[in-house]
């Protein structure tokens, strides 16, 4: 088990290194001068030269890569060209919004999906199943920005329960959570719909298994059988989807962040691209890759907890 964990860590580290190389090469080694690209068509040659020095674009490709990696390991992600502040500071601010938002949305998604999936599975073919699966179909089909605007119209404009957008910061945690609630709901709805459907089919698969019949023969009720015997066996596909969803929520919330004017990572990277701030784009992308790989590792750890058969390999 320890060996299999170590080998997973090793392979994930390798993917991290490969990813860093790809990101670096894509943004640095593409034809043309990044500094000239960032400054636009009318830039003066001496401004470009100054920026080149600023960006650390002098030296060989290998040297520049090593400098970048070393910097990141030391917590130095470089200087944002547009904001003129260290990228690390920018990122820390934005993570303070994006990570809680992703976790919030994920929790909502699980809280919604688990009962829906379980009830639909245990009443397969019944009215509850049909209704819930229809609703999840709708949840997947509705674009989340449209749903987000609907939420703003109802809860912010009409009912005035929350503000329509913006983020007050974490100095007042309650206000912060309140500000994140509508975006989290908008993000969670399609995720919960997908998760509920995956859970339903995973539980249905396990309900066909012989050990479910054994459990019923032991005297367990239908509900106890589902909860004690089916749920954990259905966990693997659900955990896989959860891992993918978290990675998506961390950076994929650009549209929702825009609708609610939230200063999140998605918006940061989006602004970085439009303003040609390649340093921000490069560092934030790397950070996201790192986060995705960490989440993947965590998901694999939970596989081991869920299924003892995997522990031996």
């Amino acid at each position: 088990m320890v060996r299999s964990l170590l080998s997973r860590i090793l392979s994930l580290s390798v993917s991290l290194v490969v990813a860093s190389m790809v990101i670096f090469l894509m943004l640095q080694a593409v034809p043309g001068d990044p500094a000239a690209f960032m400054l636009g068509l009318n830039a003066q040659p001496d401004t470009i030269a100054a920026l080149r020095a600023d960006l650390g674009l002098e030296g060989s490709l290998g040297q520049r890569y090593l400098t970048w990696v070393k910097g990141m390991l030391a917590g130095d992600f470089g200087q944002s060209y547009t904001y003129r502040v260290p990228v690390a500071d920018l990122v820390v601010d934005r993570i303070g919004v994006s990570a809680p938002l992703a976790v919030y949305a994920l929790i909502l998604s699980v809280v919604l999906a688990v009962p829906i999936g379980l009830i639909a599975a245990s009443r397969r073919g019944g009215a509850a199943d049909w209704g819930m699966m229809g609703a999840t179909q709708l949840g997947i089909a509705i674009p989340n920005f449209w749903f987000a605007m609907l939420l703003v119209l109802v809860f912010a404009v009409k009912l005035r329960w929350v503000s329509a957008g913006g983020f007050p910061g974490w100095s007042d945690p309650l206000a912060a959570i309140k500000a994140l609630t509508l975006p989290a709901i908008a993000l969670a709805l399609p995720q919960a719909s997908i998760l509920a459907r995956v859970l339903r089919s995973a539980v249905l698969d396990t309900l066909d298994q012989d050990y479910i019949r054994t459990a019923r023969a032991k005297g367990l009720s239908q509900r106890a059988t589902v909860v004690r015997h089916a749920l954990r066996n259905a966990a693997i596909p659900v955990l896989t989807i959860l891992g993918l969803q978290f990675s998506f929520l961390l950076a994929g919330a650009i549209i929702i962040e825009n609708v609610f004017f939230l200063p999140g990572l998605g918006r940061l990277i989006f602004q970085g691209i439009t303003q040609r701030d390649l340093i921000v784009v490069q560092s934030v992308t790397m950070l996201l890759v790192f986060a995705v790989i960490c989440v993947t590792f965590l998901v694999e750890l939970t596989y081991l907890l869920a299924d003892p058969r995997l522990r031996r390999r």
Binding site: Q209, R213, D307
Partner: peptide
């Protein structure tokens, strides 16, 4: 089928 009659987890 004893191979599948027990819950693997």
């Amino acid at each position: 089928e004893p191979m599948t009659a027990l819950n693997p987890v």
